[in-house]
Amino acid sequence: MEFLSDNWGLIQSAFLTTLSLAVASGICALVLGTVLAAMRVSPIPALRGLATSYVEIFRNTPLTVVFFFLVFGLVYVDLQFPSRFVAAVAALSSYTAAFVCEALRSGINAVPAGQAEAARALGLDFRQSLTTIVLPQAFRTVVPPLGNVWIALAKNTSIAAGFAVSDLTALLQRLANANADQLLLIFAVVVLGYLVITLPSAWGISILERRLRIVR
């Protein structure tokens, strides 16, 4: 226990780094993914094509490669993120947005066509019918798949450890290297750190699912 209290400051900051990586990337991915999904169902072919290409590129590229590109590749075009943390958020959210988009799109397709037709018949334009009628219903049906995306994102944050972000996985490496005799304890602490983020999310998701269910 002395080991834990000695390193408590490190543990705490690593946990907060992982949590903020996940939350910041989650929010960005949700926004970007929603925009992409709207583009994929829009009546304008150019927007549809753009969003489809984005999704196919990011969904089929390993996350580590996305990290590499954003951390080291952008330097070649004279761009650099203000910090490794921001670069990690950019990599995680641009990658996750592709999955958010696909989850949402399946939700949009599950909304009966008559809902959008009724909205259009009332005189709502494309944007209004999407934001007030279709998307709110689509979000409700995709709570479980979005929950999966969120949990995957929370765990994917660990890749940031390889790019000099001091998250829980970086803590694992650092403490384990210095304290081989405490290996099990260190593992337990790190795993617990991830569980504290993902398990309540899973509960939250199932509560949300029950709350938001729409009866048809």
């Binding site: 037709e117 005189g123 009628i133």
Partner: peptide
């Protein structure tokens, strides 16, 4: 369209 009311076979009320 806002000047043309429409009633559908399957009602299509916003669920």
């Amino acid at each position: 369209r806002s000047d043309v009311g429409m009633v559908f076979q399957s009602f299509n009320l916003f669920a």
